[in-house]
Computed example of a mutant assay.
Amino acid sequence: MYGSERMAESQRSMVRQRCGMRYDGQAARALVEETMRIEAASKNSPADLINIALEKLVEAGMEIPRHSTLDTMAPPCGPG
Rank of each mutant, 00 (worst) to 15 (best):
A40C: 12
L54Y: 13
L49S: 09
M36N: 00
N51L: 10
T69H: 04
P46T: 04
E59C: 05
E33F: 03
G61H: 07
I64E: 05
T35N: 03
S42N: 14
A40S: 15
L54V: 12
S42H: 14
N51G: 12
D48A: 10
S42R: 12
L57S: 01
N51A: 14
M36Q: 00
G61M: 06
R66I: 10
M62Q: 05
G61N: 09
R66A: 15
K43Q: 08
E59G: 05
S68Y: 11
S42K: 13
E59I: 04
V58D: 06
R37K: 15
A47C: 15
S45A: 10
G61Y: 05
I38T: 11
A41S: 15
I50Q: 08
I38C: 06
G61R: 07
A53M: 13
I50L: 06
E39C: 05
A47D: 15
A47Y: 15
H67Y: 15
E34G: 02
V32Q: 02
K43M: 09
P65H: 01
P65N: 04
A53V: 14
D48V: 05
A40V: 03
V58E: 07
A53T: 11
E55G: 07
A53C: 14
L70G: 03
S45C: 06
L70K: 07
A40P: 04
D48E: 14
A40M: 08
E39D: 11
M62G: 01
